[in-house]
Design a binder for these strands. Sequence first.
RNA 1: GGCCCUAUCGUCUAACGGUCAGGACAUCGCCUUUUCAAGGCGGUAAUCAGAGUUCGAUUCUCUGUAGGGUCACCA
Length: 478
Amino acid sequence: MQEIKVVTRFAPSPTGFMHVGGIRTALYAWLWAKKNNGTFILRIEDTDKKREVAGSIKHIIESLNWLGINWDEGPNIGGSHASYLQSERLDLYKKYAQILIDKGLAYPDPYTEEEVGIFRDQAELAKKPFLYREHRPETFNVWDDMKPLRFKTPEIKSYKWNDLVYGDLSAGPEALDDFILIKSDGYPTYNFAHIVDDIEMGVTHVMRGQEFISSTPKFLSIYEALGIKPPFYATLPPIMGADGKKKLGKRDGAKDVLEYRNEGYLPEAMINFLALLGWNPGDEREIFTVDELIKVFNISRIGHSGAQMNLEKLDWINKEHIKKLSNEELKENIFKYIPNNELKDLINIKNQLLEIISKRISKWGDVKEMIEKGELDFFYKEPKFSKEKLIYKNVSLEIISNNLKQAINALESLKEKDFIVENIKNVLMQIANNLDSRGELLHPVRYALSGLDKSPDPFIIAEILGKNETLSRLQKVI
RNA sequence: GGCCCUAUCGUCUAACGGUCAGGACAUCGCCUUUUCAAGGCGGUAAUCAGAGUUCGAUUCUCUGUAGGGUCACCA
C-alpha cells in the first residue's frame, strides 16, 4: 500500500462573512490534513463578480485566523500553485476548456439567456426537471468567447460512487446535464473551476456539504472526459438553523462566526463545539483541545443526519475550556470586557475576585453583562441599601443590629493579615451557630457588604474588601 | 414534479442482529447553604409508522410518512 500525501482545501466564495456551516467544513478538511501531516489549502472562488462583497476575503481570513485554522498555501501567503484566487487563473480554465473542445466535448451555447429561461419555465410547468441537453444543438459553432461554453455530457447514464462518509451514493441520469463551463463574461463556473483547481493543486480529499451530492455526477463526468481520477469525496451532513428544519444559511439568521468572538467565546471551545456537530470520537469524551481533536478526528465517524445548533451546549463547552485557563489568561480575556480601571486594579490584587467572576460566566461577554447589571460594583464602591432588607425572615431589626455588633467585635479582633476567608468564616460562624438560625447574622452581613439580594457569600466578600472597608460598611448599618 | 439524502430522549449523539437502548447539554428533585453561582448525588425523557427476513430487529429489506437537498451564465 502506497501512502498518499493528503491534500485538502477550503474554497469559500467571497460573498460576505463566514457562518458556522462554512467554518465546520473548513475545520474538518483542516483536521484531516493535520492528522495526516498533509497540506491544507485556502482557495478563493471569486468567479461571480456580481455576488462578490468587498472585504470578504479579509473577513474570511480573519475568521479562520481567530479559530487557528491555518493554511499551508493560500491567497495571502502564496504557494507552489499560486494564484489562490480563481479570478487570477482564467487562462488555466481556458486551457482545460480547450482540451474538452478539442475532444468534441464542449460547445458554445447558441441560445440567449431568455431562451434558456423559457426552456426552464416549460420544464417547470410540465413538472419535469430542467435539462438543457434536451435542447442541445445538432451542430456546434466555433466558440468565440462571446457565448457561454457548455460541456457536452458524453454519456447519459446513472452514476454510483463511493463517499467516505455516506458510503455508496447514486444518482439517476437526470443529474447529468450540459452545464456551463465558462460563462459569457469569461469566468468559469464553480462546477468547472473547482475541478480544474483540485486537479492542478493535487487535492486528494474533497469535503463539502450535502447540497453537492446531486451535482457529483456532473463532476464525475468531467473527470471521465479529462481522463483523470477524481479525488475522494467526503460529504458532510447539514447544520440546521435554530428551528431544526432548514439548513443553516445566511438568509435565515446564520451568524458571522466573528460575532462569537465578540461575544467572548474561546476559539478552542468553538472548534470543540463545531467538531462535535456532526462527528463524534466513538467514546464518551466531549471536551477536546485542538491537538487532541487532530489526533482522534476520523472521517469514518462523521454522521449522516443534519444537526441543529445547540447554543446551551456551546456555553457549557466554553465554560469547560475557561476552567482550563491560567489566572493570567483569565485576566487577559476578562479585562477586555471591563470598562473601568477600579475593578481591573482590584482583580489584579485579589485572585479571589477573579475566581468569583470566572466561575459565574460561560463566556467573556457575560462579564460585561454582570457589570451592566451592577453585580460587581460593591467590590469597589459603597453599596446603597435599605434597612428593611437587612431583616432575615421575621427577626426584628433590633436583634439583627445586636448580631451585627457581635460580628463587628469579633472581626475587629482579627489582625489585618489574618483577615482571610477561612478566619472570617470561623469567627462569624461561631456567632451564627448560637443563633436560632444562621441567617440572622449571615444574611445581614452579606447584605450590608454587598447591598444586593443575590451575591457571593459574605466571607469572601469581606476578604476582598479588606478589614477596614468591611468594618466600616458594617458600622454604617447598625 | 423528477432525482438524491436523512430519521434514537427537547437538543447533540452511542449501541459486530442479542444492552435494562448508554453518555452529554437542557430540565426536574435532593444534598451543601444566609442568597446567588459553583459543586455533589439522583430522577423524568427516545428507537417515525407498517409489513418482511430472522429464534431474535434501533440495527438488514420493502412500503408509507416526515424533514432536508438539488434540478442557475450561484457557489
